[in-house]
Simulated assay, not measured.
Amino acid sequence: QDYDPKVQKAINRIQSYEKVKEVTEFAREIGYRGISHDLVFGLPHQNWEAMENTIRKTMELKPDRLAFYSYAHVPWVKGVGQRGFDENDLPSGDEKRRLYEDGKKLLEDLGYIEVGMDHFSLAHDDLYQSMTQRKLHRNFMGYTSSKTQLMVGLGMSAISDSWFAFAQNVKTVEEYQKMVAQGEIPVVKGHILNQEDLAVRRHILNLMCQLETEFTETNSFPELQNSLEMLSEMQKDGLVEIFDAKVKITEKGRAFTRNVAMVFDLRMMRNQPGTRIFSMTI
Rank of each mutant, 00 (worst) to 15 (best):
K6W: 14
R13H: 12
E18W: 06
V20I: 15
E22W: 12
A27G: 08
Y32M: 02
G34E: 15
I35L: 09
F41P: 00
N47E: 10
A50N: 05
E52C: 06
K57W: 14
E60D: 10
D64S: 12
R65I: 04
F68C: 00
A72N: 09
P75Q: 08
W76D: 02
V77I: 15
R83Y: 09
G84F: 05
D86H: 06
D86Y: 03
E87T: 07
P91C: 13
Y100G: 05
E101D: 13
K104Q: 14
L106W: 02
E108P: 05
G111W: 12
G111H: 10
I113V: 10
V115D: 01
V115Y: 03
T132R: 08
K135T: 08
K135F: 06
H137N: 14
N139R: 02
S146C: 04
Q149E: 14
I159A: 10
S160F: 07
D161M: 02
W163M: 03
F166N: 04
V173E: 12
E174M: 09
Y176A: 04
Y176G: 05
K178A: 15
V180D: 01
E184I: 10
I185C: 07
E196C: 02
L198P: 03
L205H: 13
N206A: 13
L207C: 08
M208V: 05
L211S: 14
E214T: 13
F215M: 07
T216A: 00
F221M: 07
P222T: 00
E223A: 11
Q225R: 08
N226H: 12
M230F: 00
S232M: 05
S232L: 11
S232Y: 04
M234Q: 06
Q235N: 10
D237P: 00
V240S: 01
E251Q: 12
K252L: 12
K252V: 08
K252W: 04
A255S: 14
N259L: 01
V263K: 01
F264D: 04
D265Q: 10
F278K: 07
